[in-house]
Design a protein around this nucleic acid. Sequence first.
DNA 1: CTCGATTGATGAGATTATTTCATCATTCTG
DNA 2: CAGAATGATGAAATAATCTCATCAATCGAG
Lengths: 292, 292
Amino acid sequence: MRHLPPLNALRVFESAARHRSFAAAGKELFVTSSAVSHQVKTLEEYLGLSLFSRSKRTVALTPAGEQYLTSVRHAFDEIEMATQRLTANQESKVVKISVAPNFLTRWLMPRMARFQALYPDIELEINASMGLLDFDRTSTDMAVYFGNGEWDDIEVHFLRKIMLVPVCSPQLLEGELPLEKPEDLAKHTLIYVRKRKWEWENWLHQSGVDFISARGSLQMSSGQLATAAAEEGLGVALADSTLTSREIKSGKLVVPFDIQLDTNRAFYLVYRKQRPLTIGMKAFKEWMMSEM
Amino acid sequence: MRHLPPLNALRVFESAARHRSFAAAGKELFVTSSAVSHQVKTLEEYLGLSLFSRSKRTVALTPAGEQYLTSVRHAFDEIEMATQRLTANQESKVVKISVAPNFLTRWLMPRMARFQALYPDIELEINASMGLLDFDRTSTDMAVYFGNGEWDDIEVHFLRKIMLVPVCSPQLLEGELPLEKPEDLAKHTLIYVRKRKWEWENWLHQSGVDFISARGSLQMSSGQLATAAAEEGLGVALADSTLTSREIKSGKLVVPFDIQLDTNRAFYLVYRKQRPLTIGMKAFKEWMMSEM
DNA sequence: CTCGATTGATGAGATTATTTCATCATTCTG
DNA sequence: CAGAATGATGAAATAATCTCATCAATCGAG
């Protein structure tokens, strides 16, 4: 037995809360602000509490209203996306893609011309974002993730392993501190990515180096920043060789030791489980599988 | 601008789909089956596709209907839980707890009498389940998780570190294969938990043992099964010393080497972020923090 | 084998929910 | 300062939802 509040009132509340305005909600829903006011009142009576605090000509959400809005928005996002997927045109040639900023600038954008040449009538809408997506609630079609591939409830397709090599500015090679053998790293600054300290630990272990601390360390919040810091000569970072190939070729970065860390992580193409692929998604998947 | 289907029709669809019956849905919703039939028809017309396939006196969900039900259920679960939280009695003395089966039988149940003595008017409703919960959609109040504590969007409170020691049946000590030094493990079966192979790898590394393979290995799907397999004399498992203290005391299990693996994992008490705690939740939290 | 019960479909009409309209109070802006 | 704008509220109009009646087709108990 399910207990749900009056759903039409909820729909009106969500709009009013999102706009912080009954008038704006009325416009969005094609009803008068009076209808909005009545529906909100109905919902507040049902719940036995206030969702808005009224102040002169404006309304503000109460803390309860804020909490409720968060959940109701989530729920309506899911309904909206599910409805959209059900009614979506399988022939669509537009694909919404989400990738990490680092991947976008270093790998995808340099190859965009090739994709467009091969698939001239497929249109990519690309969003740069970190972290995982909730495919129940996003309109994004596909994403490129990196990690161990163990994500539940989504379709995960292996693209390519991540192979990390140390990279630094050529300035560091010309500096007064030597950088000729892995042991020399002890006298340099190691650049880590937050939550991925193990990368350097594992690389050093694999290289047969066993030391407790380097001269110093620098912790960055993302791989992109870590690589940028290396380019600035701030120290040595570990980076995926494919993502930094352009910088290596141009001489902005050098690889002091060609020792690759074979991580258990890789790039993966992901999308919602059990989702039939549109023409655009099929094209993008096919291209990613062959290009990487 | 949000696009939602007719929500009352959706509510009726969800009930009919969940029951696989218009008649049952009518009973649940206190309307006639005719109303259900009309509402489902309205929704199918809106979507432009069928959600049910009709066959004589019964209905079955179409694949589209199944997909839609999954999402709509999720969404309604969230609305229902959010509404419940908003209207919940903060004075409630009933707490719904979810813990792993291993933790329940080995740690919580043996201490239940103590909890009830200390908090006689608090009622625990305990559910044993594996994996993480979605606190947006569950009515469970609190859970005990183990892991690295890095879970986003929930309130995480450290309880106690997990310290793993090797355990086995006393039979193994009396067997013909010696088990006196960690190196002797090479001739025994190591019992792993799926996805946690690193536990043995790290323990061996910490013990100064460096061998590539043992005589064999046995992979179990849960810690509970791994410990049970050890009790059966099938090999050596790694187990948390607190969880197995009763078996160790009773002699069902022995600790061949008192070398504890200091993992980065621990037990944590978790609940929904920003949720005001009921009296029952406060009591349970207080007790867990002091008891562990 | 038959008849009553059961399930779902459908159209017409009844009922209820939702909305508009009218009015009010209060503020804000040109 | 006057008109515009926002939200509240009650009465009445409108639209959505539901019941009722009927139908078709099956199933199960006697």
